[in-house]
Design a protein around this nucleic acid. Structure first.
Lengths: 214, 214
DNA sequence: GTCTATACCAGGATAGAC
DNA sequence: GTCTATCCTGGTATAGAC
């Protein structure tokens, strides 16, 4: 006589429950598929295949392909943010810039995630794309955080105060994105040393003017 | 008695013949459609609609959608190259960098072309994309040209000689691409002033060391 | 929670009339 | 050189069995 409240397959499928295992597998599979075929070119069937279930199986965990897209973006973005939080990012100034180099180094061994983001942001520049708003907000947020970190450097007297840090922040983010593109298109184009050169230039450029001599 | 060799509709449809008119219209339409929907998301029907003919009409001028893609890329790329050739690019050094700023300024008023390139290079980072090889070669070529221009600056004693210009070239191209992404995602993020800041930093950084004093 | 079967739509390419 | 009509494939999403 089986006990009524102990089914061999637990019914709940909340994000933190045991049902989260296949959900995670789907998001990993979607990362790979979107990296290769983009969102528009990546089929649910392909994702299902990599996650070892069927296409309707995927749609049991996510109501639509668009929901898979947004979940992947949020999940993978969280990883980046966590990486930054773990470093001495909040000290600002040169220390924050060095933390950014660490992020670039981490990306250099995470080709799949980088390629996914590059492929999806390319599609996302169009307002017609479902992830457009996500990327608009993501870049606004990243710039805001970076501007604040640079301004802490100014407040500490580490950086000269006559430079618009909004422009510097844009440039630093731009370099990261652009180096990713070239790296993905040509493995020889390593990112970290190139990004380090930018940081060198930047630190030199931002070095506080010495107190007017004589 | 009609002359046998003067048909009212000329049979030839070479690239320079009278049949090139609709061909150009198709390429313009494809630029717009690919900018908004990318290659994978942009249908021949949509291109046909914008060019004011039917989908099989498009396939009369190009054997396949892929041929349309490659023709658009080559056509629009030619325009960029022409722009560079018209400036004092070949002088190298600071003059070449200033010519690059001119290119960025031209791009800032050519949103459609920029968005098309950004959308397509995003798809193109994947080796599975038909334009992958095009972009690999395009970036290799651009880097090569830029490296040579920077080295002319070194040869002229304008730039210090202890810096690897390959890295600088990568960084400059990266900044251009990355600034385009941010501009497309947020109109407020103007490109030319930000790129100008990079060039400022660069010129300062590359300034030849003064002859060792004392 | 996963499956099979299927409805439904859209895209690329081809055939053939005009 | 452009059209209409059609073929074929592949995609998302849903219904319903297990």
């Amino acid at each position: 006589m089986p006990r009524p409240s102990a089914p061999s397959t637990p019914p709940r499928a909340s994000a933190t429950g045991r049902g989260a295992r296949t959900r995670a597998a789907i998001l990993e599979a979607a990362t790979r598929v979107f990296a290769v075929h983009g969102y528009r070119g990546g089929s649910l069937a392909a994702i299902a295949g990599e996650a070892e279930l069927t296409q309707p199986g995927v749609l049991h965990h996510f109501p639509s392909k668009e929901h898979v897209l947004m979940a992947v973006l949020q999940e993978r973005d969280r990883e980046n943010v966590k990486q930054l939080r773990s470093g001495p990012w909040h000290d600002g100034g040169v220390t924050a810039l060095r933390t950014l180099l660490g992020l670039v180094e981490d990306n250099a061994i995470a080709r799949e995630r980088v390629q996914m983001f590059t492929a999806l942001v390319g599609e996302g520049v169009s307002a017609a794309h479902p992830a457009h708003d996500f990327f608009v907000e993501r870049y606004a947020h990243l710039r805001y955080q970076l501007i604040r970190a640079l301004q802490r450097g100014q407040d500490a007297g580490e950086f000269r105060s006559d430079v618009d840090m909004a422009m510097i922040a844009s440039l630093v983010l731009a370099a990261m994105d652009g180096l990713q593109i070239q790296w993905l298109l040509d493995d020889e184009e390593t990112m970290p040393p190139r990004f380090a050169v930018l940081l060198d230039m930047l630190v030199t450029y931002l070095a506080a003017e010495p107190p007017a001599p004589g």
